Measured scan of single mutants.
Amino acid sequence: VTTYKLVINGKTLKGETTTKAVDAETAEKAFKQYANDNGVDGVWTYDDATKTFTVTE
């Protein structure tokens, strides 16, 4: 299990959150659900070296 980070650069929501997941794909699903629940819809990137997803509106 690895800790992944999400950086949110939204129009109305900015911040960070983390999740523990077995792989990046599982973390991405959780983060996309989180973003959707919070009304954030943007461009996604992922940096494997830092295990960090970024979504920018």
Results as ranks from 00 to 15, higher is better:
G39M: 07
Y4R: 00
T54S: 06
W44C: 02
K14M: 09
K20F: 14
G39I: 04
K20D: 12
T45S: 09
D47G: 02
Y34K: 03
T52S: 04
D23E: 04
T45R: 07
L13I: 14
V7L: 09
E25F: 11
A49H: 09
V1W: 12
A27S: 02
N36R: 14
E57R: 04
T26V: 07
G10N: 06
K5A: 05
A21E: 04
D48G: 09
K29L: 10
T3H: 07
T3F: 07
V1G: 09
E25S: 13
N9S: 09
E16Q: 12
D41M: 13
K11E: 08
F31I: 02
Y34S: 02
E16I: 14
I8F: 06
T56S: 08
T45G: 06
F31H: 02
D41W: 12
E25R: 10
L6I: 03
V43Y: 09
K51N: 08
T19W: 07
G42A: 02
Y4A: 01
T19G: 04
T26D: 09
E57W: 09
A21G: 04
V40Q: 03
K32S: 04
G10T: 15
T54I: 07
V22W: 12
W44R: 00
T3D: 09
A21R: 03
T3C: 10
N38W: 14
W44E: 00
Q33D: 08
V43E: 12
T3R: 06
V22R: 09
D48L: 06
F53C: 00
N36Y: 14
V55Q: 01
T54V: 06
Y34D: 02
V22D: 08
E28W: 14
K5R: 12
T52W: 02
F53K: 00
T54H: 07
K29I: 10
T12K: 14
T50C: 04
I8G: 02
T45A: 09
D37K: 11
D23G: 04
L13D: 05
K20G: 08
E28S: 07
I8C: 04
Y46V: 01
W44T: 01
I8L: 07
F53P: 00
T17H: 15
F31G: 00
E25Y: 11
V7C: 06
D47K: 03
E25H: 12
L6K: 00
F31V: 02
F31C: 03
T26W: 06
A49Y: 12
T56R: 05
K11S: 11
V1R: 07
Y46N: 00
T19N: 05
T45Y: 08
E16Y: 12
L13R: 08
E57S: 09
A21N: 03
E16H: 14
E25W: 13
N36G: 09
A35V: 10
G10V: 11
V22Q: 11
D37G: 05
D47Y: 04
T45W: 08
L6G: 01
K51E: 04
V55M: 04
K51I: 02
E28Y: 15
T19H: 11
E16W: 13
K32A: 05
V55E: 00
K11A: 11
I8R: 01
Q33E: 11
A27E: 00
A30Y: 15
T52G: 02
L6F: 06
G42H: 02
Y34P: 00
V7N: 04
V1A: 12
I8P: 01
I8V: 09
D37C: 08
K29V: 09
D37V: 11
N38R: 15
V7W: 05
T50R: 05
E16L: 12
T2A: 13
A27V: 03
V43A: 10
F31Y: 02
T52P: 00
T3Y: 09
G15T: 14
A35R: 01
N36C: 09
N9R: 11
G42N: 02
T12Y: 15
V22N: 12
K11W: 09
L6P: 00
T45Q: 07
L13W: 14
L13H: 13
Q33M: 10
T56E: 09
T2H: 14
I8S: 03
Y46H: 02
Y46S: 01
T12G: 10
A30W: 15
V55N: 01
W44Y: 02
N38D: 03
N38Q: 15
G15M: 14
E25N: 11
K5W: 11
K5F: 14
T56H: 06
A21M: 03
T18M: 10
F31A: 02
K51R: 11
T56M: 07
T17L: 14
T12N: 13
K14R: 12
K51Q: 08
A24H: 09
F53N: 00
D41R: 13
N36I: 15
G10E: 03
Y4D: 01
Y34A: 03
V55A: 03
L13C: 13
T26Y: 06
T56Q: 06
T50V: 06
E57L: 10
K20H: 14
K14H: 10
T52A: 03
V43I: 10
D23V: 03
N36K: 15
G39D: 07
A30I: 13
T18D: 05
K32Q: 08
T18C: 10
G39L: 05
T12E: 11
T2I: 14
D37F: 11
E25A: 14
N9P: 03
A24Q: 14
T3M: 11
I8M: 08
W44I: 03
K20P: 07
K29W: 07
D47A: 04
T2E: 12
N36A: 15
K29N: 06
A27I: 01
D47E: 06
A30D: 08
A49S: 12
A21C: 07
L13E: 07
N9C: 09
T12R: 09
I8A: 03
W44K: 00
T52L: 04
D47P: 00
D41S: 12
T26P: 02
T12I: 13
D48R: 06
V1D: 15
N36D: 11
T50L: 08
F53W: 08
T12P: 04
G39E: 08
F31E: 00
A24R: 15
Y34T: 03
K14T: 11
N36V: 15
A30M: 14
A49E: 11
T50A: 09
